[in-house]
Design a protein around this nucleic acid. Structure first.
Lengths: 343, 343
DNA sequence: TTGTAAGCGTTATCAG
DNA sequence: CTGATAACGCTTACAA
């Protein structure tokens, strides 16, 4: 079954409207004045033929395009997927089209492959979702000749890539301080992989502890999944003085909660658990999850906004921050008296 | 700050290697024999200049490209995001690059806008995620001149678009039969929006009930979110004889579970709840969720495979099905005796 | 095996 | 206001 029924080109439209191709191009771009008579003839021809300009030819001659590439390590996990959705939404509204490239590891060869294929497209710009170490490396691999902005989890150094970010540090700090204010002697932390050593959720947690003069327990490293939360939390069952656990994300939190519950601990009576992100399920959890709310979709929109502004003005845009807010629900409470008595 | 530092073109490479552009093109494509001497000179020049072929120019002259467009209503929800990830993964491995277009509504104008922008790209083919009504309309709007395949939730009529699908009907049927086998008199259904009238999860549920001679309660229509599950389930609290509820997805299930628990019902003692999809959190739920497992990532891979095969062979590929499997966990059990006695 | 040259579908420059 | 015509960067006959 043949599929190559020719797509009409600008010359077909010109022929049908009985004008020159330049005229067709003009009415389509709308940048120059064209007489109403010719304009309507062209529009009719376009309509009739179902003509659609060939973007490849356009970007070839213009040297730029309306395509923007998004680089991310993952597209399934909530934060990534929601950020992508925000980017796509804003890009579509602005007439851009988006290309997505997932970069699975920071391995130079794999990175080069993912990046090369995408960068050989004629791009208007690129966006890197820099929520993890792979994102950092991807950003470093971007050519300086291309406008690139990032969606991040922390403010980056001045003068670098423009970026919109969710203040993970502030979120971690606030959640920890909240737990401390409830009377917990200290707060443990089940961490997602860090983007950089001294930043993000884990760093906010540590600082809040230090500022309050509380002991800083060893950080427990996990991955991102509920299973990882479950597995690592099982190892925490015997830890003395563990009455509050701040988790790097909501999935970890529910995995940990399950592990504790199976171990006979009640939440929040014996142990308080706080998540991060406020995924849709957090509110329905049993008990409902206290967590740090993040608006990833908005982050995505704002990140695209930075790029759009750059493209329009020719100047790098300012950074854009959002401070997350703590949502207090049922999974957190004051520590049990018995444990306090032990100290 | 200027950003237009010229990207090297094939002529720059040719000049530096002191050969013709056709020779450069030949070593890059690898389709024709080139002497080792020239080949290595070219490779050195490519390396040195960091040359990357311009995909727009390539697709312009070739009339096709290595870009495939993916149309989806959403990119956040689990099934969609996971399918997209599978597509991207397979596409990247095969040297394709993917473009994503979200189509928010089936409204003709909005549809045309989303589709037009993307179809003006030179595409190798397109994939439509047809998990909902918008997907059906998007598919209908695709030009016949382009190879298009779909990822679906049910087998479609013969001779139409090639598609890979997860058998929603079978999943709904099996889950319902399982609940009936536990002794429930009937099973209620909290449904996600349907793709088509007589297919999918809801249709499997209905058929299983009919085949077993059980009463078919009115289907309760919900959306996709936990909140929607919660809200609609609250309206079900007073329904007599409701001892088992099959939910259209896991998010609905946890929302419903929460509503019932708040209403004083125990799960599974008073009411059995079964979800759909087996999202990562399902296993960690409290109680852990009995659900119909679906491998969306694999669906995505297989869908891309269909397109790749078509592109390679020039023939439409066969359809490809996967039957989901029920995962029995803690949220389902036999109905309470007291209720049975009432009948 | 290598080079020359004719396009691919548009836009933009430059005359009319 | 409109129409030729020269690029844009690359591939691919066709010659050499």
């Amino acid at each position: 079954m043949p599929i190559e029924r020719d797509v009409p080109g600008i010359v077909d439209v010109a022929a049908k409207a009985d004008v020159s191709v330049s005229t067709v191009s003009r009415v389509l771009s709308g940048r120059t004045r064209v007489s109403d008579r010719l304009r309507s003839k062209v529009e009719a021809a376009v309509q009739e033929l179902g003509y659609r300009p060939n973007a490849a030819a356009q970007s070839l001659v213009r040297g730029r395009s309306s395509t923007i590439a998004v680089f991310a390590r993952n597209t399934i996990r909530y934060g990534y997927a929601a950020t992508l959705q925000g980017i796509e939404e804003a890009a579509r509204a602005a007439g851009y089209v988006i290309m997505i490239a997932v970069v699975e590891s920071g391995d130079p060869a794999e990175l080069a492959r993912a990046v090369d294929g995408t960068l050989s497209q004629t791009l208007a710009g690129a966006i890197v979702i820099e929520f993890d170490e792979v994102g950092v490396k991807t950003l470093a691999a971007m050519p300086t000749s291309l406008p690139v902005v990032a969606a991040a989890g922390a403010r980056r150094a001045r003068g670098t890539t423009p970026h919109a970010f969710l203040d993970d540090y502030a979120g971690g700090y606030e959640a920890t301080r909240y737990l401390l204010s409830l009377g917990h002697e200290t707060v443990h932390h089940l961490a997602i992989p860090a983007t950089r050593p001294r930043s993000g959720r884990a760093w906010g947690w540590r600082k809040a502890l230090e500022d309050a003069g509380a002991a800083v327990p060893a950080l427990v490293q996990a991955d991102y999944s509920p299973t990882s939360g479950y597995d690592t939390a099982r190892g925490l069952l015997g830890v003395p003085g563990l009455t509050a656990l701040l988790c790097g994300n909501d999935e970890l939190a529910i995995g940990a909660a399950r592990a504790f519950q199976e171990g006979g601990r009640r939440i929040p009576d014996d142990i308080s658990i706080v998540g991060f992100d406020d995924q849709p399920f957090a509110r329905m959890w049993n008990p409902s999850l206290t967590t740090v709310q993040q608006d990833f979709v908005d982050l995505g929109r704002r990140t695209f906004g930075l790029l759009e502004q750059w493209l329009a003005s020719g100047e790098r845009a300012q950074d854009s921050a959002v401070t997350p807010s703590l949502v207090i629900r049922e999974s957190s409470a004051s520590p049990p008296r018995t444990v306090s008595a032990n100290h």
